[in-house]
Amino acid sequence: MVRTRLRRKWTLPRLLIALFLLAVTAATVYPFLYMISVSLSGDVYVIKNEISLLPKGVNFRAYEVVLQDARIWTSYRNTILYVGIGAPLSLLVTAAGAYSLSKKEMAFNKTFTLMIVFTMFFNGGMIPTFLVVKSLGLVDSFWSMIVPSAISTWNLIIMRTFFLGLPKELEESGKLDGLTEIGIFARIVLPLSTASLATIGLFYAVGIWNNFYSALLYLRNDQLYPLQVVLRNIVMASQMVLNGGSNVGDNQVLDEPLKYATIIVSTVPMLLVYPFLQKYFVKGALIGSVKG
């Protein structure tokens, strides 16, 4: 009743709310549009800082240079490998751990739960963790991007909350068939949890894709650098080694379009897949909020 009445009324507060939401949307979208415009614009307009929304003097030279840069390709490949190997691994370990924690009958269940939750409020800090990673021989290795950040406590707890909600009867049938808990987990629970697994898997994938911290701390070898480090070197430290030798069409390319093009090239995959995966992300945020 209340709702139908509201639908007809277009009052001043509601107009202001609509305008506010439009402003939020514009503030979110505008930086992306602007970056795309500059990356496509001609040097003259960029130097004079004349671009506000649409590109002027459209050309693709910046992208040609960026896509010729070996560092971009190497780091792209590295990041895809880190995500491709790290996310499934993290997901598997998290799911198995969360399943065990959701079973009250497991010995030490309370101790383990407490032990895990405690790390959310206190941890050893950057240097001691670094020294452990170093003593395990992980520094400057492929695995340093995957293993030290393999489990997110938050994801583990979300997963556990989800498993707690599964009906007991499902597992009883497995027990009657003589399956062990590992069998029940692998054959019954996992196939029934695909949506939640997808959600957590995606959170891990995004986390690894965006991870700059581990690379900064643990990687020195530039052949192992993920995209984020190369991106930072190009955009913020202005390591435009490529610009010196990049004479596409006998023309030097300005820094700005190149930097924007680099940002766009590294962000596009995320922006492209996001709309299709949004519902999984939102689902994950909501399971987590049920019981923290």
Partner: peptide
């Protein structure tokens, strides 16, 4: 609970 503990081991 040995099987559950085995599942939990990597996490631990």
């Amino acid at each position: 609970s040995k099987y559950l503990l085995i599942l939990f081991l990597p996490c631990l």
